[in-house]
Design a protein around this nucleic acid. Structure first.
Length: 742
DNA sequence: GACCTGCTGCGGTCTG
């Protein structure tokens, strides 16, 4: 055979693989094993523990996990699935299924897709003769555990590995908490501790990621990483302001028109433009297509976002993958994860990045061939301001945010996971799922199953008892207690669990479909319907609304010559990490912009620095300026996000928290007190917090929580763990505890 | 004035 693996590390790793896997590797014609693969193979095959594989996008991570995993299970003949692969996206499962097919065929191991688009008959077939590898979503795994718990020991009793793809996508979210809880439940059902392998490109804090992967033994997780270095980065931040127009002069091109002109220069290659919102995606995709048509050129610009129909999105992905015709896709985060689209030349971003991890992920789409630089252009629109405007409006926070994000990117800092929140909405969901899975359970057993070392470890027995009491309250009727003390599903609990919508822990809004000539183009939210005869831009084209069928939730359209993007509904707001805000402050303080700014950007940068000095924002606390209240940003954006949520719940309209929070209303005393406490970094008085929260929901099952539980959960998102328990204990009241936890 | 993700079981009808 050839002299494939050239390094000694590569040779040693290669020798560990199963002969059939070795043959497959030869057949691929690879010059050698990638460094990440050479490292991961012994890490997985020579030990029993958990592993995190971190390498740049397109670094061969999938094979780094599956060459050893397939080798380990190649000779297994006992019935049962041997490896479970969990992915955040169905599209990624379909991609990986295609990719694994050849390798697994060589070794004669079946690979099963298992998600909502897979037919019941295919699942039935896999279930009747379980073997090989299952590729699944968290929701489908939840459904399997709840609906088929009796079969789990037979299906997974001999499971050898769990592989989690795009692991970063599961960190710091409700869905990630659910996933880890699911893996714990799976191990409990099978009585085996199964090695976990997490794959990711952008993990900043490996120890924290390890703690998320295996909460009760983070030290035992081996991190296999390769340097992403050596890649040449070319980054430019371009700022835009409206040009002043003298009276009587023809109007100057708008900021949007100038950014469009800049993006149009990307013609002739493969590029991605991250628009920041579906609205922007539609706006720019339409303008760019119109510009092509105006110049009688073939269109190269296409939109891609979550409200477009699957077939429209797949058409665009296919066009990128083919690489035959030059293509620029204007998209949201939909093209950020690992769906196979090939390499692109330039990555552009409209507006400042909100997350460094996501910026890194986006950049990973560019410069994937050796010797080719990764190119990033950040286009930052800013408003025009007058000299007399308030300094808040002259801070140019978007420019500073973009510069701060680039500084952190160069520093290789990424948002770390946050583990300290209580996640009571998800805990409630998991308690229901576990009761349904077992048919009934004691409170003590539930507590030890869910709140041991794991994503709910911050929940005390008292708090859990309060949660169960809330669930058992006749007004909610989620659970009830039998005479033997066993907890069972109540009337409402049955109804929830029986509906298929139960399996996902995230909320989704109701939508209308938009269709032309029988083809569904995509969806818009029900609360922002389109009127008949209005003009709309959708899927990158212009349409006239023919009719709206309310009962069918269907909007029909015909081609038109005008239109503007529909409203896709509001987002969650905020979401910046404290570190990014701190870096913004550092940029204001030290004035170092890395030389990445265009001339307009430099002007705005100087203007922002001046405004910053004018304000004299150097201490922590709340500034009252006239009828405005400014919360200094340096308390941390995470806290501000929470605060802004609370303030919105109280009906305040004018909020700014990019760098400060302004409130143009008089604040109730209790809320001011809580704001003060938060600004000073001390735990707020629980009653003041309660006054802020009222009884509004953010997560899917918040609506079933009492005000006290909601407050405890709310506080947990930014307080230190000790303070969380303190505040929660005060809220819940230790005196009531104990009745359910016998 | 942000983004994204996911979905079972059953009963009915039709096709090969």
């Amino acid at each position: 055979m050839g002299s494939l693996p050239s390094s000694s590390e590569g040779r040693d790793a290669f020798a560990l693989l199963h002969p059939a896997v070795q043959r497959w590797v030869y057949e691929q014609g690879w010059p050698e094993l990638r460094p990440i693969q050479a490292k991961s193979i012994p890490a997985i095959l020579n030990r029993e523990g958990d592993t995190i594989i971190a390498a740049a996008t397109a670094g061969g991570k999938t094979e780094a996990a599956f060459l050893p995993v397939v080798s380990a299970i190649a000779e297994e003949t006992k019935p049962g699935f041997k490896a479970l692969y969990v992915s955040p996206l169905k599209a990624l499962i379909n991609d990986q299924w295609r990719r694994l097919d050849g390798l697994c065929e060589r070794v004669e191991i079946p690979v099963h897709k298992w998600h909502g688009d897979v037919s019941a008959s295919a699942k039935q077939k896999a279930r009747s003769k379980p073997s090989g590898i299952v590729l699944i979503t968290p929701e489908s795994l939840e459904a399997m555990l709840v609906r088929r718990s009796m079969e789990i020991p037979k299906l997974f009793g001999d499971l050898r590995y769990v592989v989690v793809d795009e692991f970063h996508a599961f960190i710091g979210s409700e869905r990630g908490v659910q996933l880890v809880s699911l893996l714990n439940r799976l191990e409990a059902l099978t009585g085996r501790r199964v090695p976990r392998v997490g794959l990711s490109a952008t993990l900043g804090d490996m120890r924290a990621a390890a703690a998320h992967l295996r909460p009760d033994d983070p030290e035992g997780v081996v991190v296999v990483a390769t340097e992403g270095g050596g890649q040449d980065l070319r980054i430019k931040v371009m700022a835009y302001v409206p040009e002043p127009v003298p009276d009587g002069a023809p109007s100057a091109p708008s900021v949007t028109e100038r950014i469009t002109k800049e993006l149009f220069k990307l013609r002739g290659a493969h590029n991605l433009v991250f628009g920041g919102s579906r609205n922007n995606v539609e706006l720019y995709a339409d303008r760019l297509r119109a510009q092509c048509e105006g110049m009688s050129l073939p269109n190269e610009f296409f939109p891609h976002h979550g409200s477009l129909s699957r077939d429209i999105r797949e058409e665009v992905e296919q066009r990128l993958r083919d690489g035959q015709m030059p293509t620029t896709v204007v998209c949201t985060t939909t093209l950020e994860l690992g769906i196979d689209i090939g390499a692109v030349e330039t990555v552009a971003q409209i507006g400042p990045p909100r997350s460094i991890a996501s910026l890194r992920q986006r950049l990973g789409r560019s410069g994937r061939r050796p010797g080719q630089p990764a190119i990033l252009r950040i286009h930052v629109p800013e408003d025009g301001v007058d000299a007399g405007d308030h300094p808040f409006d002259r801070l140019r926070t978007d420019v500073f945010q973009a510069v701060a994000a680039v500084r952190l990117l160069v520093e290789r800092w990424y948002e770390p996971p946050e583990r300290r929140a209580l996640h009571l909405s998800t805990l409630l969901h998991q308690a229901l799922a576990l009761i349904a899975q077992r048919g009934g359970a004691s409170a003590r057993w539930l507590y030890s199953s869910l709140c041991g070392p794991g994503p709910f470890e911050g929940v005390t027995p008292q708090l859990f008892a309060a949660l169960l009491r809330a669930m058992g309250d006749p007004s909610r009727a989620l659970i009830e207690q039998g005479p033997d003390g066993l907890l069972m599903l109540g009337r409402e609990g049955e109804r929830l669990v029986d509906h298929y919508g139960f399996f996902a822990v995230f909320e989704t809004q109701e939508e209308y479909r938009i269709a032309h000539a029988g083809r569904v183009l995509g969806t818009v939210p029900v609360d922002t319907p389109l009127a008949p005869d209005s003009y709309v831009v959708f899927a990158g084209r212009r349409w006239r609304v023919l009719g709206v069928d309310n009962p069918a939730r269907l909007i029909t359209v015909e081609p038109a010559g005008a239109g503007k993007p529909p409203s896709f509904g509001g987002g969650d707001g905020g979401g910046m990490h404290d570190r990014l805000v701190a870096e913004m402050r550092a940029v204001y303080e030290d004035g170092k912009a890395l030389g990445v700014l265009n001339p307009t950007g430099i002007d705005l940068f100087n203007q922002g620095r001046q405004a910053y000095q004018d304000l004299g924002l150097s201490h922590t606390g709340i500034l009252a300026a006239g009828d405005r209240v400014l919360l200094l940003p340096w308390v941390g954006a995470k806290k501000l996000e929470t605060l802004s949520l609370a303030l919105k719940m109280r009906g305040f309209k004018t909020l700014r928290f990019e760098i400060g929070v302004e409130v143009n209303d008089a604040l109730p005393t209790q809320v001011v007190k809580a704001l003060h406490d938060i600004a000073l970094g001390t735990p707020p008085d629980p009653m003041a917090l309660a006054a802020m929260v009222s009884n509004k929901a953010t997560y899917k099952f918040d609506g079933f929580l009492t005000e006290e539980l909601l407050c405890a959960d709310f506080a947990s998102r930014w307080l230190e763990p000790e303070s969380v328990k303190e505040v929660a204990a005060k809220l819940v009241g230790a005196s009531q505890s104990g009745s359910l936890l016998k």
